[in-house]
Design a protein around this nucleic acid. Sequence first.
DNA 1: TCACTTCCTATTGTATACAATTACCAAAGG
DNA 2: CCTTTGGTAATTGTATACAATAGGAAGTGA
Lengths: 217, 217
Amino acid sequence: MSRASETAYEKIRNFILQGEAQPGMQLTEEKLSDIAGVSRTPVRDAVQRLENELLLVRSASKRLSVANWSDGEIDEMFTLRAMLERHAAERAAKRMDADSLDQLREINGVLKSAVNRSEPDIGAFLNANRQFHDLILNCAQSPRLSKLLPALVEQPVVRRTAHQYSVKDLAQSGKDHDELIAAFAAQDENWAGAIMTSHIRRAFHTFSETTNNGGKR
Amino acid sequence: MSRASETAYEKIRNFILQGEAQPGMQLTEEKLSDIAGVSRTPVRDAVQRLENELLLVRSASKRLSVANWSDGEIDEMFTLRAMLERHAAERAAKRMDADSLDQLREINGVLKSAVNRSEPDIGAFLNANRQFHDLILNCAQSPRLSKLLPALVEQPVVRRTAHQYSVKDLAQSGKDHDELIAAFAAQDENWAGAIMTSHIRRAFHTFSETTNNGGKR
DNA sequence: TCACTTCCTATTGTATACAATTACCAAAGG
DNA sequence: CCTTTGGTAATTGTATACAATAGGAAGTGA
């Protein structure tokens, strides 16, 4: 995307995710253009994107506010994400080529080395994890899916959990990826789909525990 | 949404769906603002929405063009739609109240009366059908789902099939709705989900036949 | 005190002018 | 004949001014 529009998106997004904005907080386009340092025009572009990702919501009278997720809605989000990522994994398993497999292995290596050290590097972990899932999504070769999924991934979760992962959770993620790679190598779509499903379920479980929302499904 | 922005959305959408625009055709924001009769500002809003629905696509250099779906992509769209609508039906089955049930019955009545006449009223049928599915989506009470699904429904299909439905297909749709209503009344989520899945599959099959794309899955 | 009306203000929506980017084409050089 | 390079026109991106609309506070009457 264009420069101002993109920086607006990123700055507003960080503003929301990294704690400066309270859920439910009212915002105006002008405040956001101050934050982003650009005029309202690109801000409006960014806002529309963030509305699609449901990070921002508009009241009946067009007023903007920061989304405020209920536990039930977060649960639902993980459920949908599990459905769609499973589907992506299934498609990817049928379409995976040797090059992509190698890349997956490499990314997974980075991910593990970020975890296997005295002080795990959460940033590097999250980054590699994202790359891993993005690559699978690409291999699925579905433009629709590529539009739908990113709006579901990560966002409302990052702020609350980024510094709360346990080493055990991080290690489990690496193991899941190992299994996924094996499933892709075997071109076994059912296996890949099943692993992906439980992978996301685990992510939800981790989320529920670290945020003490009861972990009910 | 706002007036100009909304009319722009509708006019451009009609322009695409009702045959004036060829798939792959290049467009400019200025042409679109001529079509819509408003300035570029609201047009850009509308374009962003239509990009999300994948009716418009942007080339690497930001040029706009009308989407051109391959058979495989349309297939994929129906698959995703089936997944999400099934999920919506399952949730709706657990949350359906007496009022909504009555409304569903009423809408279904309208739908059938649009079909059971010497000259079926396709417009009325499509309208009632849409209302039916929208109501189910509302009952599912999932903001995420309500964002994701509408971008998948109907669009790239309407133009090619609107006047091609057979009376048999239309009648089958009414029967599916009967079964869905029964499943909702019984609050049987598995039943509702199963019916919805085959309902969408049938829609895809009908689509494939009437467009002679081979109907391969 | 409560409801209702009426302003004023804050906020969003739209148009337009201008800046920046990109494509297109023609001319030059190999 | 092909490729490259420059310039120009077309197109998208951004800022700003203004219009329209919604919210809220102050005032009025019962």
